[in-house]
């Protein structure tokens, strides 16, 4: 778990999602499904067992007509670093079979489908519901399996899966860089499928540790917040919103603190 603990070159890939721009169009969800061979069933309206590595939530401010407001919030895996960046994300620390791991060189929380034996403890641990279980055998209608991406293996029934920040794209980019004699990637060489597809350009992806990457600055915005920061999960997905109520919806607050978090 703790190999290559050298923090010098350690990257910390993360996302900044601009909720002011997100239109809730759903392209990120489908881009992800297509990239990662996410299975689908004949009825996917039961959202509690529908696999969507990135899911767009619809938030409302709870006010009545005409003061109602809506905000869409895409939610991938947060790739939590845990307290003190130790990689003890809620899920990694509980997996009994080391089937999910924290990569200290990238900050990405991996999932090894062939190792997972489906105990679902990680799902119980994740407050973001970012993990999904394969309750069914994945079935592609005849012919449609031709569209499957060979870079991501389809999962079998009975294992947990989740967003990998398109880690296979990182590997491919690194492979390419190595053959070209480089050890480092340009910012645009490694982008997740959802980032690439987002018509609104609402998603920015990059190395949070790298001052040359856009995310490095964006995350410092006064409008930036993360989901459930109080739980000290230390997520690597940041959100931007200019609206107070949206930022407040990111965490739980006691009535007495209702004065909106620090800006």
């Amino acid at each position: 778990m703790k190999k290559e603990h050298t923090h010098e070159n350690a990257k910390k890939f993360g996302m900044v999602i601009d909720l002011d721009k997100c239109t809730g169009c759903g392209a990120c969800m489908v881009a992800c499904m297509a990239e990662n061979n996410v299975p689908f069933k004949k009825d996917e309206s039961e959202k509690l067992d529908s696999i969507t590595w990135i899911r767009v939530y619809k938030l409302t401010n709870g006010k009545s007509f005409p003061d109602t407001e809506i905000c869409y919030l895409p939610k991938p895996c947060m790739h939590c670093s845990g307290i003190g960046e130790h990689g003890h994300s809620p899920c990694v620390s509980v997996c009994p079979a080391t089937a999910t791991d924290y990569d200290h060189t990238t900050g990405i929380v991996s999932q090894i489908y062939t190792r997972c034996f489906g105990c679902r403890y990680c799902m119980a641990a994740c407050p973001y519901h970012a993990r999904y279980f394969n309750w069914w055998d994945p079935v592609w209608p005849e012919g449609m399996e031709k569209s499957l991406n060979p870079d991501v293996s389809p999962r079998m029934r009975g294992v947990v899966e989740k967003c990998s920040f398109c880690f296979h794209r990182y590997q491919a980019a690194m492979d390419k860089a190595y053959t070209e004699g480089r050890r480092e990637l340009e910012e645009d060489e490694y982008q997740t499928a959802c980032t690439q597809a987002c018509p609104a350009g609402a998603i920015t992806f990059g190395d949070l540790n790298n001052p040359d990457h856009k995310v490095h600055e964006l995350k410092k915005s006064p409008n930036a917040f993360r989901l459930l920061e109080r739980l000290k999960t230390n997520p690597k997905v940041y959100y931007l919103s200019s609206r107070d109520w949206v930022r407040k919806a990111g965490d739980n607050y006691l009535e007495a603190e209702n004065k909106v978090k620090k800006k």
Binding site: C25, G26, A27, A31, E142, A197, P199, A200, G201
Partner: peptide
């Protein structure tokens, strides 16, 4: 028109190409 972006229908185009509705 789209400068890199695609909508969700376009992204699922391969399901129309290879799918059972053909």
């Amino acid at each position: 028109v789209n400068d890199g972006g695609v909508c969700l229908l376009g992204l699922s185009g391969l399901q129309l190409l290879y799918g059972p509705t053909r």
